[in-house]
Design a protein around this nucleic acid. Structure first.
Lengths: 213, 213
DNA sequence: TATAATGGATACTGCTACTATCTGATTCGG
DNA sequence: CCGAATCAGATAGTAGCAGTATCCATTATA
C-alpha cells in the first residue's frame, strides 16, 4: 500500500499523514526505494486510532503521542497499563492548584473515602473533580462534595461493568489499545447519552417539534 | 469597582478582561468619566461564568458567546430554554456527516426508540453518539448500538434526578444559567468520577502506590 | 504636582494542527 | 523507452484561536 492508498483507505489527507509521520505518531512505511514505501493494514489501523483519539476524544497531538507511546511500550508490566493509559489520556493539569482547589481536593478525598473508593493521590481526575466543585462555588452554589453522589453512584455502576468486561485476552498492545479506546469512546457516548436523557426527561420534545408556540 | 479590582476579585488578568469586553462577552462598566468605569458584582459573576465555561466546560470563546446570548435573550419562552441551552453548548458538528455516520444515526434512532426516549431529530448529541459507534467500528469492533445500553441506563438515572432537581424558581436568566452550569459542570464531574471508579474497580491502586514493582 | 493607574483602540504574539511547495527519484501508460 | 504522473521526504508557510502588549489621552492619588 502506498501513501495515496493509505490516504484513500482512511480518509486522511496525504499532507496530514505526512505530518503524523513527521511527529512520530505513525511509523514510516517499509522503504522499497528512495521514494517508495510500503504501508500495511497496521498503518491504516493506527491512523484510524489517531483520528478517533483526536476527534472523538478531543486529544491534542501531543497527548495522542503520549497515548501511543504507552501502547507501544512493551516494557510496561500488564498491571500498570490502566494507570499509564489514564495518565496519558488526562488533560495537562495546569501546574499548581489554587488554594481553593487544594482545599476542595481534601473534601473530595473524604468523599471518595466515604464511597469506599481507593484511588491514588496522583489521579488527575481527583483534581478535575475538585475543580468542578470550586466552579460551582464560584458561581454561588454553596454545596459540598456530596452533590456529586448521584453521579458517583452512576459512574460506579458503569465502571464496574466496564472493568469486568475488559478481559486479559489478546496481546499486551491490543489490551492497552482496548482500554484507551474504551475510556475515550464510551466517555463521549456517556456524555451524549446524558444530554439525550436530559432532553427526554425534561418536557421539551413537544417544544422542539413545534417551535412556533 | 474598577477594572483592576474586578481583575483581582476574579483572578482574570486585565488584558483578558478587556478582550472579553471587546468580544462582547462582558458588558462594559458604567462609564463615570472618559477613562473611568464602574463594574459591579454582576460583572464579577459573569466573568466567573465565562471562565468556568472555558476551563471546566472546554468551550471556545465563540461558544461561550452563544451560551451567554441564550442566557441574556429575554424573549425566549421558558419551555425552550433547555433546548436552546443544549444547542448553544453543543460542539460545532462538522457540517455534513459521512455515509457511515448517517447509517449509524439511523441505528441510534432505533436504539433510542427501544429505550422509550423521545428526542428531537436535531439534537446534536444524536450525531455524537453515532460518531462514537462509527469510531468503534473503524477500530475493528463489530458492535451495534446496544453496546451503549449500560451507559444509557446510567445516563437515564442521573438525568432523571438532575431534571427533577431543577425547579422553576428564580428569574428566567438565572434558570438558564443554572441549566447551563449544571450541564457543563456535572458533565465534567461525571467524567472524572467514571475515571476514578475505573481506577478503583480495576486493581491498580497497589500498582500505583508501588510503581517500582 | 509628580507618579501611577485608567479605559479604550490597535497591533502583536505563541501555539496548534495542519497545508503547500520543492526536489530528485521512480513508476506507469502507450 | 519516453514523457507524464506519482512518490517519499524535507522545509516552509498558513489559519485560527486566545490572549498580550503597547499606546494614548485622561484621571486619580500620594
Amino acid at each position: 500500500m502506498r501513501i495515496s492508498e493509505l490516504s484513500r483507505a482512511t480518509g486522511v489527507a496525504i499532507p496530514t499523514v505526512k505530518y503524523y509521520l513527521r511527529e512520530g505518531l505513525l511509523a514510516r512505511g517499509n522503504a522499497t526505494a528512495p521514494n517508495q514505501a510500503d504501508y500495511v493494514a497496521a498503518h491504516a489501523h493506527r491512523l484510524h486510532l489517531i483520528r478517533v483519539l483526536r476527534e472523538v476524544g478531543g486529544l491534542s497531538i501531543g497527548r495522542v503521542a503520549a497515548v501511543l507511546a504507552a501502547i507501544d511500550d512493551a516494557s510496561l508490566p500488564r498491571h500498570e497499563l490502566f494507570g499509564v493509559a489514564q495518565r496519558a489520556l488526562a488533560p495537562p493539569s495546569a501546574g499548581s492548584a489554587s488554594a481553593q482547589v487544594t482545599l476542595a481536593e481534601a473534601e473530595i478525598d473524604l468523599f471518595l473515602a466515604d464511597l469506599g473508593w481507593e484511588v491514588s493521590a496522583e489521579a488527575p481526575a481527583r483534581r478535575s473533580l475538585a475543580e468542578a466543585l470550586v466552579a460551582l462555588r464560584k458561581l454561588g452554589r454553596d454545596c459540598g462534595a456530596e452533590v456529586f453522589l448521584p453521579h458517583a453512584q452512576a459512574a460506579g455502576h458503569i465502571a464496574e461493568q466496564e472493568v469486568s468486561g475488559v478481559g486479559a485476552e489478546g496481546d499486551r498492545a491490543a489490551a492497552v489499545e482496548k482500554l484507551v479506546v474504551g475510556t475515550v469512546v464510551f466517555e463521549a457516548a456517556l456524555v451524549a447519552l446524558r444530554r439525550l436523557a436530559h432532553e427526554h426527561y425534561s418536557g421539551l420534545r413537544a417544544a422542539l417539534y413545534t417551535p412556533g408556540q
